[in-house]
Every structure is written in structure tokens, then in C-alpha cells.
């Protein structure tokens, strides 16, 4: 057994089997329970990732501005972006690291469900090598794949629709409101591509996996609501930033204030009174300013530089 199987896969499989035993010999309930347990354990990481993503989205208008400004100077653009991230306390890796940490857990859960379902004789035979020497575990197998009239070992159309639907909802909640045509197209693509693909996967893979995705999506929606509110689902109902979100927003505000106080170095001037409005992605007044936060609606360019894309020389 390789380290991955020994440290990750084997414990998850055995926990799934034991959960099945204690949840009325119902493998469907065991999948739901384990998904909830794993989501609760990884909740701090998920929250960290969501908050970092949200803060990153808040910075997007400024980044777009920088991209426009330094379109012909990649090096300078990178420098300015890094400076912006650093000063606003937003880490580009803040979104990725928690996600990367969670990936092995998801993959293990995914593989464990597939293995535990033992859809073919070979898989049941192979499953034996992952079992701990607990009497419960040995006697429980093979697990029954029936759950609420569904065969968890077969693809299921209803679950595929539910997974696709919940994924669309979740995707819609995280989609930033923008008037930029390119970004809109990208968002639209993501909004439909993921649900369609996962819906297709649900039809072709054992529906035990679809059940896992469905529960996971529902939990994601709940967490997402807690962090960002309904997002693009209900733009008029903006959620007030939670305590930890304020940390990022405060830093961003400070950066903007610093920018306004140092007009020679900074090209973007942000009225400090409006800086607190970042994060309200559904603000209608923001939409009137072209999708940018109020602070960016008041961008003032220094004389002689407006419209110029020449790289700035220091």
C-alpha cells in the first residue's frame, strides 16, 4: 500500500463502512454524514478561501485599471499588482492554498466512495486490502447500494439535475457583478460549463458520487451565503461584511487612503469616504458607474497621462 492509500484512503474507506453500520446499514446516509463531517473539519480552510476570494474580487476593478494602464509593460503591471496585493493584505495564494489543502481530502472521499461501492467483482476483491481488522468492517461488506429507491452504483438522472442545479446556484452566488463584456462572457461560461459538466459526470458515474456532490454543493451554498450573501443571485440584497471580511476591507481602505494622500506615486485617487463601500457587489450606484465601486468611479487621472498607455518611467 502506498502512503496515499495508507494515510488517506484507507482511513476514509473504513470510516465510511463504520458509518454505514451505525446509520442503519445505509450507505447513502454514510456518504451524507461523511461529507458533512469533512466539510465541517475543513470549514476554517473553506472560510479562509472564500474570504480571500471575496477580497480579491473587491480588488478586481483596481487590477483592471492597472491592466489597462500598464497594458504594454508586463513587468510593471506585475510589480504594481504585487504592490496592490501586499498593501491591501490580500494574498494571491490565499485563495489557492486552502483549496489545494482540501483537494487531497476531496479526492480521497471521491475515491473511497467509488471503491466502497464495489461496483465490479474486481473492486470488491481489491477493497479487502484496505480494511482494518475490525470485525464490523469485514462483516459489513459488500455494502448495499440502495438509497431511497436509488441504486448508488448507477448513474441517476434526477441526481444529475439536482447536482447541476445546485452547482449553478453556487456558481451564480460567486459570480462577480461586472459590466466588462469579457468578464461577463467568462462568468457566463463558468456559470454554465461547470453545472453541465458535473451533471454529465453524474449520469455516467455511480450516483453515490452524485449524492456526495449534491450534499457538498448544498453545504457550499450555505457557507457561501454566510460569507457573501446571495451574491449575484439577489444583487439588491447585499450582505454586510462579517468580522473577518472587515480585516481585508480595512486594509484595502487604508491602501486607498494612502493612494489619495500620495498623488505623485499613485495614479488612482480614491476618496476615502467611499472606500467602505467595497464588497457590496450588488450596489446599484456602483452599477451606474460602470460596475466599479464608488471609489473607482471617481478616478482622477493626472494631467497629460489620461488615455496614455505608455509605460511609466520612474
Amino acid at each position: 500500500m502506498n502512503p496515499w492509500e495508507l494515510i488517506i484512503l484507507q482511513p476514509v474507506i473504513n470510516v465510511l463502512i463504520v458509518l454505514t453500520h451505525y446509520l442503519f446499514d445505509n450507505f447513502g446516509l454514510a456518504i451524507i454524514a461523511l461529507t458533512i463531517i469533512v466539510r465541517v473539519i475543513t470549514l476554517p480552510l473553506t472560510l479562509k478561501q472564500l474570504r480571500a476570494t471575496k477580497a480579491m474580487q473587491t480588488l478586481q476593478p483596481k487590477i483592471a485599471e492597472l491592466q489597462q494602464k500598464y497594458a504594454k509593460d508586463r513587468q510593471r503591471l506585475a510589480q504594481e499588482q504585487m504592490r496592490l496585493y501586499k498593501e491591501s493584505g490580500v494574498s494571491a495564494t490565499g485563495c489557492l492554498v486552502p483549496m489545494l489543502v482540501q483537494m487531497p481530502i476531496w479526492i480521497a472521499l471521491f475515491q473511497s466512495i467509488l471503491l466502497s461501492l464495489a461496483v465490479a467483482p474486481e473492486s470488491l476483491l481489491n477493497l479487502s486490502r484496505y480494511l482494518y481488522s475490525w470485525p464490523i468492517v469485514y462483516s459489513m461488506l459488500p455494502l448495499s447500494s440502495n438509497f431511497l429507491g436509488l441504486n448508488l452504483a448507477e448513474g441517476n438522472f434526477v441526481l444529475a439535475i439536482l447536482v447541476g442545479g445546485t452547482m449553478w446556484l453556487q456558481q451564480k452566488m460567486v459570480t462577480p457583478v461586472t459590466t466588462d463584456a469579457r468578464q461577463q462572457a467568462q462568468s457566463r461560461m463558468m456559470l454554465w460549463m461547470m453545472p453541465l459538466m458535473f451533471g454529465f459526470f453524474c449520469l455516467t458515474f455511480p450516483s453515490g458520487l452524485a449524492l456526495y456532490w449534491l450534499v457538498s454543493n448544498i453545504i457550499s451554498i450555505v457557507i457561501q451565503y454566510y460569507v457573501t450573501g446571495w451574491g449575484a443571485l439577489a444583487p439588491s440584497v447585499a450582505k454586510q461584511p462579517a468580522g473577518k471580511d472587515k480585516k481585508y476591507l480595512r486594509r484595502i481602505t487604508q491602501v486607498e487612503q494612502a493612494s489619495s494622500e500620495a498623488p505623485v506615486e499613485a495614479d488612482i485617487v480614491v476618496p476615502s469616504s467611499e472606500a467602505g463601500d467595497y464588497g457590496r457587489s450588488g450596489d446599484k450606484s456602483q452599477e451606474r458607474r460602470g460596475g466599479y465601486p464608488p471609489s473607482l468611479g471617481a478616478i482622477r487621472r493626472r494631467p497629460g497621462r489620461g488615455g496614455s498607455h505608455r509605460p511609466k518611467r520612474r
Binding site: I107, F110, Q111, L114, L115, V119, A120, P121, E122, S123, L125, N126, Q186, M189, M190, M193, M197, F201, F205
Partner: peptide
Amino acid sequence: KTLLLVVMLLMVMSGLTGLGCIRGLQPI
């Protein structure tokens, strides 16, 4: 970007289920 995303997802899914195909998700 769409094509890259599709390819990436397919790679991830085939990677995940590769385990199954090798280790016996398929009746042989």
C-alpha cells in the same frame, strides 16, 4: 479558456477514476 477548462476537468476526472479503472471499477 473553455477548452482548457474542459480538458482540465476531464483530466481530473479521468485521474480520479483512473484508480478505479486500474484497480477494478471495471468488470474484466
